[in-house]
Design a protein around this nucleic acid. Sequence first.
DNA 1: AATTCGACGCATGAATCGACGCAACTCGTA
DNA 2: TACGAGTTGCGTCGATTCATGCGTCGAATT
Lengths: 314, 314
Amino acid sequence: MADEALSAGAVARRLGIAVTTLRTWHQRYGLGPSEHVPGRHRRYTPADLIRLETMRRLTANGVAPAEAARWAVQAPDAALPGPGPRTGKRGARGGGGATIPVGRSGPAARGLARAAMRLDSNAINEVIDRAIRTDGVVTTWDTLLRPVLAGIGERHVATAALIEVEHLVSRCVSEAFAAVVRAHAPGGPPRILLSCADEEQHSLALEALGAALAEAGIAHRLLGARVPVRALLEAVDRTGPAAVVLWSQTRSTADPAQLTALLAGPHRPLLVFAAGPGWRADRLPAGVVRPVDLAEALSLAAAVRDSLDQSAAG
Amino acid sequence: MADEALSAGAVARRLGIAVTTLRTWHQRYGLGPSEHVPGRHRRYTPADLIRLETMRRLTANGVAPAEAARWAVQAPDAALPGPGPRTGKRGARGGGGATIPVGRSGPAARGLARAAMRLDSNAINEVIDRAIRTDGVVTTWDTLLRPVLAGIGERHVATAALIEVEHLVSRCVSEAFAAVVRAHAPGGPPRILLSCADEEQHSLALEALGAALAEAGIAHRLLGARVPVRALLEAVDRTGPAAVVLWSQTRSTADPAQLTALLAGPHRPLLVFAAGPGWRADRLPAGVVRPVDLAEALSLAAAVRDSLDQSAAG
DNA sequence: AATTCGACGCATGAATCGACGCAACTCGTA
DNA sequence: TACGAGTTGCGTCGATTCATGCGTCGAATT
């Protein structure tokens, strides 16, 4: 048992791809066992495995399969190309199989989609973490995560499938944001409260905002999904935040009364944000700010922090 | 040495296999008596018997014989790293005020409850992280997190308040588990799939199991809450896990048909666990294992550990 | 004398092979 | 904007290869 020669099935399971795909990779790209007699079963040595592992990692990062294969064949262990000048050319025509449509959202999005389809949480984490480290939370959210999540959402609305994929990716994103928050030491007491609207289940965008805030050194408090108005008011009452961000993803959860209640409470926050696509601008009570995207929400929140600092210093 | 040194025939009869097979197992897989001189008769010690018993049990469950043998040779019975020594003495006297009932769950629980009431996520994180680092995931879950969560739950069922507290704590717990998973490099391909039952919303216990698995060095895949049967089957089909853990918190989500569907699928898992208080033991289809608590689930899952992954990866 | 040993071979079912095709996606072009 | 060309992952099918449990045989062990 000293010689570890894995069968095709074992390797496929390990990589999270179909056995057929493994054969296809061998035929199309020459990426197969180093020694193989036609007609006989393939036996993958550890060295072959490393090559395949590289292939997987590259495709998970958005490299076109053909190119990734070429790469894996001649440089078994290869680091990823820098984020720099890699935007332009490309004659590759991506596509293929049961995937998630991400349109022209860049290679990282494609890689993320691929990893997601394989339910490969490790690869998913890897891609997300790298993106956040490289481009920051805001950019990652806008150009990577949101497109991919939207793609998955579209799909599973249409076909009622991929729900498990969406869950997994959501979890990974959530965890990545949490890691960002944990990594950046929270400076001072949190004066910004983030909360979902009543009945609202989607909190990912809020978590993105939270991570972005943490990244900018701004402490916050995040309540999470499905916060009843009463609980929200109680939380505001107990913690006395300077600003409250209320997220509503869909119209059905965007009851303006929640905002009004916030403004009418005993500990009225300085600023109330109505964030998310659910809110209708013309139905918002006076005194409520409605940021259009993550970046704007971030800068507004930062402004709150600054004004607080000044008033405290003066 | 009046010890039971069983002869080949006796062992074969006991295991219900042919004597020849016993010899074959020895030759092909090295699974034989620990001491044996070529040409002489084989004498099986009780230890050898255990190994063979494992082999038989695994193969009876559908594990490939070669794999089962490797398994049996290196891990006769799945023993697990026990948790550290119990913590507490300490007689801190808990105070009054609006708090959460945690019973006699120790000072950490009380501290956690207090931090939760303040919506102080930093403090919450701190307590949880420390507990996990000190006592491990299993103990922390059983003696700290579950009591506190249960306490909060009780309260807000009674008073319809504290919902925001529960959300916050849940989030923090979730993140802490995620951090554990991220910290422990997952070795090899995940062969264990964790999923909530259809409609089941509570996934925290599953996340605890996931973290415990990660702590023990066992890779897994966690789908999350509210996984439709169809999505679960699709995931099983695509990833071909060796074991599937299906969590049901309440009776209403514990539809045995889900388990049956799992067992009937094309990529039938070796082992199916019905975990959580929702399941009724007398309604489970044959072939389903029902662990009673986190520790048991962990040790059972450990028994399914994939033995194929010991190659160098990145 | 009853077993067991080691070697060899066989039957059988599972896994894999190679070829083919499908469906889905992207991109250039009209 | 719609459409065709190029990519790609993977399901299917009939044939082949492998893995595995076990029977048989002559010699050795107990």
